[in-house]
Amino acid sequence: MSTETVVQSTPARKIVIAGVMGALAVFLGWTHLGFIPWVAGAALTIMHVPVIIGAVLEGPVVGTAIGLIFGLFSLLQAVLAPTGPVDVWFQNPVISVLPRLFIGVVAWLGYKALKNVNEPLALVVAGILGTLTNTVLVLSAIGLFGHLPWGALPPIAIANGLPEAVLAAILTVAVVVAWKRIETGTRKSKM
């Protein structure tokens, strides 16, 4: 059924998209499906990808709402089921909630700026910008509270932020291109 083509954005649409993408972010965190083991015991996360997808599909308000759910969940998780010293820092809402509110807005701005030029490219940019917003703002907040020296932050931003941005861009493109049936020009299976 091609009901997804009803483009009109109603209050119900905004609420449901925000709700399901929020649920997805929570689910990815809860089951640890959204974490990919990375070097030296660190993990890359894609929990913020639902925020980016929601923002691209339904705009900045929906993106912010999903970001809020994501942030509240990471706050709750840090409080109720901490798994390491870093979680202690995330018990502070300024670190766990506040930065997440901006992921959607920035991703949407990037998407909107380029959408009419090249939509797949706009999606890549949204994925990257959304991720970097998350990385930079969270790390800044951590620096602000003095949990880590400022000098330690840029290496972390590069080591985690960049690969996460790539993963987020890949996922955002894969999902939104399929969902909105965007033509990408190849039209060939590898078979």
Binding site: V177, A178, K188, S189, K190, M191
Partner: peptide, 20 residues
């Protein structure tokens, strides 16, 4: 889950190590 029909059918054989 694949974008193209042929690729989706190929998932199994490739996962079991078949050549292209």
């Amino acid at each position: 889950f694949e974008r193209y029909a042929g690729d989706d059918v190929a998932f199994g054989p490739l996962a079991f190590g078949a050549s292209i």
